[in-house]
């Protein structure tokens, strides 16, 4: 009788533990996707490209990139976070990452790179090419 009760208890415990492990794995997966860096790289690259597309000579733009800075620090990325070359904006927050998006506005900018030293990415549209 006691042996039967012990078996039932053990089975139930194993059942509960397996359920908890399963749910934990699922929740960890959800959190990893939600905090995925590539999502942020895409967002910033497209945001900067659209700002440049809408800008005119003389405009100064400042974009708060504190969220990107934090992630770059966590990933120990000290190289350029933003680089603009040949009408393409590239945002890179870790070594194996990076997202590029092109813009059509043929303008010259005064700042083409952004390093993780400040929270704001500021640039000025100097003139049309």
């Amino acid at each position: 009788m006691k042996n039967k009760k012990a078996n039932i208890l053990t089975e139930n415990i194993i059942f509960i533990v397996l359920n908890l492990v399963f749910l934990t794995i699922l929740i960890l997966f959800l959190f990893s996707k939600a905090s995925d860096v590539s999502f942020l790289e895409e967002k910033y690259a497209k945001q900067i490209a659209l700002m440049i597309d809408s800008a005119k000579p003389g405009m100064e733009v400042a974009l708060n990139m504190s969220e990107a800075m934090e992630i770059a620090k966590k990933k120990k990325w000290e190289e350029k976070i933003v680089s603009i070359q040949d009408n393409v904006v590239t945002v890179k927050l870790h070594e194996k990452g990076g997202y590029s998006y092109s813009f059509f506005n043929d303008v010259d900018l005064d700042v083409l790179y952004f390093y993780p030293t400040q929270d704001e990415f500021k640039f000025k549209v100097v003139k049309y090419k």
Binding site: N87, S102, F104, N105, D106, V107, Y128, K129
Partner: peptide, 13 residues
Amino acid sequence: LEECHINLGKENK
């Protein structure tokens, strides 16, 4: 393209 300061790039997008 020159007058309107538009660069369509090389990738035919």
